[in-house]
Simulated scan of single mutants.
Amino acid sequence: MVSYEAERTVLREGRVVLWEVLPQDAARIADGGTAGLSWIDGLPGDGTVDAAGIVLKAAIAGTYVPGWGVYCVLRAEDEVAVGGIGFHGPPLDGEVEIGYDLSVSARGAGWATDALRLLSGWALGRPGVGRAVATTEPSNTPSQGVLSRAGYSRVSDRDGLWAYELAAAPE
């Protein structure tokens, strides 16, 4: 289910809610804040903070595209944030790149897999998006497991990183 709360995209499926980080939220997260959310480990993880900084820079540069930034991963039951997931930018040549970061105490419970399935499905349902990709360090076997469980397949490496792809269903 997709809803829009004051221009914010919110994706919900099962036990996961993806809450879009708007530029004003990104500024708060990039400055070490919580954006008004309750985080499982007190604060967002480093990857989520870095992604918020990218959203903020894009907003300042005038290149921010709503929907194609970062989302906080929330537990649906209590809306506690367990991590972040998002795009490296808007679609380019029919492709989007996705990255994710979970709080330490949320790892190993399937949150990244559920969030990746939800965000990938949303992205691949958008006009002009034919594939989603993600990269991981060769030694990051937990992330590789997330990608495999979410339906991604290994493709050619990119800049020394292992690359995975999920293609849109044929129409």
Score class of each variant (00 low, 15 high):
P170D: 13
S120F: 00
L147H: 06
E7T: 09
F87C: 00
Y100T: 00
G84F: 05
R75N: 09
A35I: 06
A52F: 06
L22W: 01
S156C: 07
N140A: 09
S143E: 03
L124W: 07
S105V: 13
G32T: 06
A30E: 05
I85F: 00
Y164R: 02
S38C: 11
G45V: 06
A59F: 05
D78Y: 12
Y71D: 01
S139Q: 13
G47Y: 07
T63N: 05
R15T: 14
A81C: 12
E95H: 04
L118P: 02
A167K: 13
A35P: 06
V73G: 01
T48H: 06
A115H: 01
A134K: 03
R12N: 12
G145D: 05
E171D: 07
A115W: 01
A132C: 11
A58I: 03
A27H: 03
A61T: 10
G33E: 07
T141E: 11
D159H: 09
V70A: 03
D159P: 00
Y152Q: 04
G110Y: 10
Y100K: 01
R8D: 10
V2F: 13
G89Q: 06
S3Y: 13
G151T: 08
E77N: 12
W162S: 12
D78G: 11
D93Q: 09
A134D: 02
G69K: 01
G160R: 03
V82I: 09
Y4K: 13
L74D: 07
D78L: 10
A134M: 08
S148I: 15
E79A: 15
I98R: 00
V21R: 01
W19G: 01
I54H: 14
I54E: 09
D159I: 02
D31M: 09
D157M: 12
W19A: 09
A115G: 01
S153C: 11
R8P: 13
G130V: 08
P142W: 09
V2E: 09
F87K: 00
D93T: 08
A150I: 05
V65G: 01
A167T: 15
W111K: 02
L102F: 12
W19D: 15
L56M: 05
L166H: 04
A134C: 14
A61S: 14
D78P: 11
G67R: 00
E77L: 13
S139Y: 14
M1P: 15
G128I: 10
C72S: 12
G94H: 07
L18S: 00
S156M: 09
A150L: 03
I60S: 07
P127F: 11
G160A: 04
D41P: 07
A115F: 02
P127W: 11
R75P: 07
W122S: 06
W39K: 05
E95S: 11
G151R: 02
T48Y: 04
R12D: 13
V10E: 10
H88L: 04
D46V: 10
A6D: 15
P66K: 03
R126F: 09
S139H: 14
D114E: 15
I29L: 15
D41T: 14
D159C: 04
D25Q: 07
V146E: 02
N140P: 04
A163K: 13
V2R: 15
S3A: 14
T48W: 04
P44T: 02
D31H: 09
G94I: 03
V49R: 15
A76T: 11
L22A: 06
